Computed example of a mutant assay.
Amino acid sequence: MQRRTLIALAAVATLIAPAAASPATAGPPGDTGRTLQAKLDAVIAAGMPGAFAEVRDRRRTWTPTAGVADVATGAPVRDGMRHRVGSITKTFVSATVLQLAGERRIGLDTPIGRYLPRLVPGEVGRQVTVRMLLNHTSGIGDYDTELIKTVDDIVRLGETTFAPSELVRIGLGAAPTGEPGAAFSYSNTNYILAGLIVEKVTGHSYRAEVQRRIIRPLGLRDTYFQGSDLGIRGPHMHAYVPWVDGDLRDFTRYNMTWAWAAGELISTGRDLNVFYRALLTGRVLSPALLAEMQTATGAEGYGLGLYSVDLPCGRFWGHDGGTVGHQTVSWHSPDGERQVTYAHSMAWYQTSPTEPHPIDVAYVDFLVTALCGTGAAQTFTAPALPRTVDLTRPF
């Protein structure tokens, strides 16, 4: 869910590839398994409790794991664990909206007030379009910055069940980030509205539509929406936040209704790689709709629920996601042949405002090595990634 992750990763792209990127070419080196394991072990050595990844290079797949899934028991991280993938939910929701657009049931350039006149009346309803929701140019405020202002709010959030309409009202009540259509400004409120529009035009829950259109057809057996269930079904890493008393606080049991269509999805490395490969190779959307999805706004490289990142070996597409304790990055070559989905089990670890945290250096090194090979990660210096930190204002 954290918009800061997107901004930070865009900064990585700028540092790695200041010139325009060419199409993705060479992949990881031959001794990939040992190399990837060593890179993931370095993430743990830098202070992360646990991490896993699935890396695919055409027909080869590697699934390195490192660290512990539970610091209390010492149980190791295993391949195939489920994970809260946060804002990666947005790609699923956007793909569903685009399918409905292809069926002429949603207009990308239709004002959202036509679908939700009571919830979004007035100028906002008349000026903001569906496309502006999906590419974060609506100018609507981000509700999560209103929900979390203190340490106590982090705890309270996971103990509260929110209705999506309540989240929208909070976002609409926040200060707008700009005029509709004027500039990119990441706001989770946009995707709550997109989920509600899906429900309005189909008469079904947004979850049911995503399941019917994407999750079931692609056989994503370990992907589901958490909702108000406190736990994660099946094997998983615990979710940790370094707390004000210096200890790790466990937020594994957490009510995710505050994220809804903006970030409540649970998935695995395998399922996300299957999904993004299907998306990028035309199994989810028509070529015209995929082109709409990949039409980016401004320098951020953000399209419609999908963004690009330029690495030394070319351009990759995907999304990242952060929730309370869990973070995920999923990047893929345009042809779906080279893929990495990476996840770790601690968020909001302290970092300097000017120097990168060793965890950030290590996991960005892993990502770039997974997609481009060993030498590529040595061609840049990872920037400071603002993964958190003043727990009085964590978002």
Rank of each mutant, 00 (worst) to 15 (best):
V198T: 05
R249D: 07
L367T: 00
L279C: 07
R4H: 11
R221E: 13
A66Q: 01
V168H: 01
A175E: 06
L9I: 14
M48H: 02
Y254R: 15
L119S: 02
N255D: 14
M81R: 05
Q294K: 12
A38T: 15
P242Q: 04
R118K: 14
R58F: 09
E159R: 13
R169H: 04
T150F: 04
V329P: 08
F92S: 03
R207E: 12
D144S: 14
E264V: 12
H136L: 04
A17E: 15
T268V: 10
Q37M: 10
L391D: 02
L230G: 12
G173L: 09
R34L: 13
L285M: 09
P29F: 15
R315P: 11
I154V: 11
L280C: 10
L40Y: 10
L193C: 01
G86C: 13
E146C: 02
R4Q: 12
R221F: 15
R233A: 15
G86V: 10
L147S: 03
D109G: 11
G86A: 14
G158E: 05
A278H: 11
W243G: 09
V77R: 07
F162W: 14
Y342D: 04
R315Q: 12
D365W: 00
A376D: 05
E179F: 10
V68D: 07
Y342E: 02
T374W: 07
I214K: 10
L304H: 03
G234V: 07
L134Q: 01
G301L: 05
Q99R: 09
H326T: 15
S345A: 08
L36N: 03
L147V: 14
T91C: 11
I88R: 06
S205C: 11
Y186D: 00
D250E: 09
A299P: 06
Q350K: 14
T89M: 10
P353D: 08
T189Q: 02
R34S: 14
V361D: 00
R277M: 06
T177H: 02
D142C: 05
R283L: 12
Q339Y: 03
R315A: 07
R3G: 09
A370H: 03
V97T: 00
L218I: 09
I44S: 01
A53K: 06
F225T: 10
G47E: 01
L193M: 04
Q211P: 06
R169W: 12
L108K: 04
R105T: 05
T14R: 13
A261Y: 12
D360P: 09
R126V: 02
G282C: 07
W243T: 03
V198D: 01
A38N: 13
G231S: 10
V241I: 15
G298T: 09
T160H: 08
T354W: 15
D271L: 08
Y191R: 10
V368M: 04
